[in-house]
Amino acid sequence: MALLDVENLVVEFPTRRGVLRAIDEVSFSIDPGEVLGVVGESGAGKSLTGAAIIGLLEPPGRVAGGRIMLNGQRIDDLSPERMRVLRGRQIGAIFQDPLTTLNPLYSIGRQLVETMQTHLPLSDRDAKERAIKWLEDVGIPAARARIDAYPHEFSGGMRQRVVIALALCAEPRLIIADEPTTALDVSIQAQIIALLKRVTREHGTAVMLVTHDMGVIAETADRVAVMYAGRIAEIGPVRDVVQSAAHPYTEGLMGSIPSLEHRVDRLRQIDGAMPRLTAIPKGCAFNPRCPSAFARCGEERPDLLPAGATRAACWLHAGGARG
């Protein structure tokens, strides 16, 4: 059974000009120990999906439809109090800016100990020992000596390590990591990705990795969901999505990334821009920019259809159903 099951999730923002649908019928699941990458351009809805799962949608945003199931238990309709307990114990979160997660007024040791004691029955002594072990685990040098240090005494990369320890220390089953390496330099980014991969693998934690960086996904994720204008355009094993994309948008996206391996004269480009939520085109949201669009694309909205090894929301694959 899947650990996380998101079914037809809809997130809406009521505004005075009408209700904006920021996430439109998104469904996916994550198995225990699996890393699902979620990519897309800014505004595609990838971060909102993560926020909806951990119950941290900023008002007036709200879940307006669908279900979110964790371990077979429905979590999208929990009270804020129950959701708070669930966060930490069942779901951990890692955000782009470590400073939004860490409390500047408490030492990192105290934050780790408090988080663990909130969710696990541990004595002060045991909790502290575990905190030190976690810090060592995420690669903080001289962890025992630095356990009483405050967040500002750490560099950006070290802080993100502390955040990872904090997200994992209550041993949640699922981690939502929203752009965890975007604010970091490349050499540090590589360290953090490797760390995240290793620690979650060791603990069997499932990860939903939200990022705009395809390179990070390619290296880290088992499966990847590509989002476009609030919907999943394509979802499948990472190798297939990267190397033989079925959706024209995914294909264009991969082609537009400059490569380190070889140099081309012109990058492949997708003309135009992703539509704003106020002006989502009829039919497939990608059809005005799509080189392969035909009549049906402007009329009907495609659902995810089996397309080789992946599933793509594209009418090109309507005939080739093998699934």
Partner: peptide, 13 residues
């Protein structure tokens, strides 16, 4: 640098 060509590759940073 993470790269598209490195699907599934494990690096020692």
């Amino acid at each position: 640098i993470p790269d598209l060509a490195m699907v599934g590759r494990t690096r020692t940073p």
